[in-house]
Design a protein around this nucleic acid. Structure first.
Lengths: 238, 238
DNA sequence: CGCGTGATTGAAATTTATCAAATCGCGTGG
DNA sequence: CCACGCGATTTGATAAATTTCAATCACGCG
């Protein structure tokens, strides 16, 4: 695989305030800048497979990726939804334990593993920010476990929609009903996210529509007339 | 809450090789030692509730604790099983997002939040080790999500038993069949761990027993004549 | 305009939960 | 040392939720 890679000035970076480099001083940024390279990935492409050796870690600059794990018979569960500014990879370890797939077209800001490991030792602000991001991810994972283990199909769908709204809509926009969300992933991916089948996802979406909680426009757009009503369906905690 | 707290010399610490302080130099240990205090917690007691302010973080020295989250109607999902050497709490944040309960009698090695936050900034080896532990926890959480979202009840039980064996048995002991494990938690806790009901847990244990995969001795002891056979039931990946 | 992929709908099967009752394990007091 | 009692566990019958299998529908594209 020899795709075109390139480099872009950090000062224009859309994720500079939230990514792993967010806390860096200019001189630290310069050091990171030297080892970084951009890498585009087309939607649907596999970034890495479970067990594979990956010689870089990366920040997602734009696009959506998914992390997933599978059983031998093909059942798969998404275990991470990776949005812009999120970090991919594990410093200090060569292999990964899950598949990474580009859900949409993706731009990665990659760092070769070796130099990045060294940077982690030398730049406290990177290590600090990475630790904080891991804690946030852990909190999200725990919410997700509650969803997977205990929520009903309807609650799962509602929770998912609430999550999508929270991630894509500015807080103040929530006061102007109705809210619109664009789903970044297919029904199949939603099913893998929620531990359901495609059919159940579809059925629950129509059920919510028939109950007036949402309306659907095309396959990827959801309109929510009353966000609170949707949250009530989600079993709270989101 | 005014329990007896006390302090113990780090050199006798049973978890010194795996805890958050594992990488510390003697002088770093000394700094940690100054702010630490031991705290015993009785089995069944609540260590902290979701949303509560907690003014310390801690390592588990001995015993087992659980992290769990609940929906308003009482459905509960365990989101973490905390064993000796594991770390509890989130530096840099005052409140926690899940309940923490002592499953067995517990000894905690606590650090007041404020000084610990400062130590995180000053002692690179603590920060480094904590980051590594978080990555491990994240990996475990992702395996757990696959289990919750996609495994059948039987596979969940088998996976749980495999996990218990791996955590409590030395690798070389696995070659000497049969393997014995002591379950650290009740059926109810197992159900909360696996996203099942008590009844299903009980039924699947009986089913595995009838199929000759395990045998049960009392309520807390499991004997596994053929560990590989059990792993086969777990759907691998564990 | 037909094809193909993704989504929806329907009917039946399966898994797991729920409700109810019996039994077990174990510590306690006689 | 043993009967008693209580909580934990197991077992049974039934109900509910979700999956599975099958068919149809919708829409973008060549």
């Amino acid at each position: 695989m020899k795709e075109s890679t390139f480099k872009v000035d950090c000062s224009y970076c859309p994720i500079k305030h939230r990514a792993v480099c967010a806390r860096c001083e200019p001189d630290e940024l310069e050091i990171l800048n030297e080892i970084k390279y951009y890498k585009p990935v087309a939607a649907g492409e596999t970034v890495a497979l479970s067990g594979e050796r990956v010689d870089y870690v990366a920040s997602v600059v734009s696009g959506v990726a998914s992390l997933s794990k599978s059983l031998e018979d093909g059942r798969t569960q998404m275990v991470g939804l990776v949005l812009p500014s999120d970090f991919i990879g594990r410093p200090g370890r060569e292999t990964i334990a899950h598949d990474v797939t580009a859900v949409t077209d993706l731009t990665l800001c990659c760092f070769h593993r070796k130099p990045f490991d060294k940077i982690l030792e030398e730049l406290p602000h990177v290590r600090e920010r990475l630790l904080e991001m891991m804690f946030d991810e852990m909190d999200a994972a725990r919410d997700w476990m509650l969803l997977l283990g205990r929520k009903t199909a309807r609650e799962k769908i509602a929770s998912f929609l609430v999550l999508m709204v929270n991630r894509s809509t500015l807080p103040k926009e929530l006061f102007i009903a109705p809210v619109r969300v664009d789903l970044p992933i297919s029904r199949d991916a939603i099913a893998n996210f929620l531990g359901l089948t495609i059919e159940t996802v579809s059925r629950q979406l129509t059920a919510l529509r028939k109950d007036g909680i949402i309306s659907l426009e095309g396959n990827r757009e959801v309109i929510i007339p009353d966000f609170q009503a949707l949250k009530d369906e989600a079993g709270l905690s989101d």
